[in-house]
């Protein structure tokens, strides 16, 4: 019973971890690359142009 529970639970936990990690990355990209708040836009301006993000 115990073994069976582990065998089912493990892949789900791993998948959840991977999704959480990917989501954290997505948030970083969104803030650094896409949010249009003026201060953030000005600070990230050159990188946004140089890495192909839609800017302005």
């Amino acid at each position: 019973m115990n073994t069976q529970t582990q065998a089912i639970a493990k892949p789900t936990t791993k998948l959840a971890t991977l999704i959480a990690v990917a989501f954290a990355g997505l948030m970083m990209i969104t803030v650094a690359g896409h949010v249009q708040a003026a201060a953030l836009h000005d600070a990230a301006h050159d990188v946004r142009h140089a890495t192909g993000f839609p800017c302005h």
Binding site: V21, A24, G25, M28, A32, A44, V47, R48
Partner: peptide
């Protein structure tokens, strides 16, 4: 910002 963006990409 370059390191931040690529750290985000690296996580994904």
């Amino acid at each position: 910002f370059s390191t931040l963006i690529y750290a985000g990409y690296a996580l994904m």
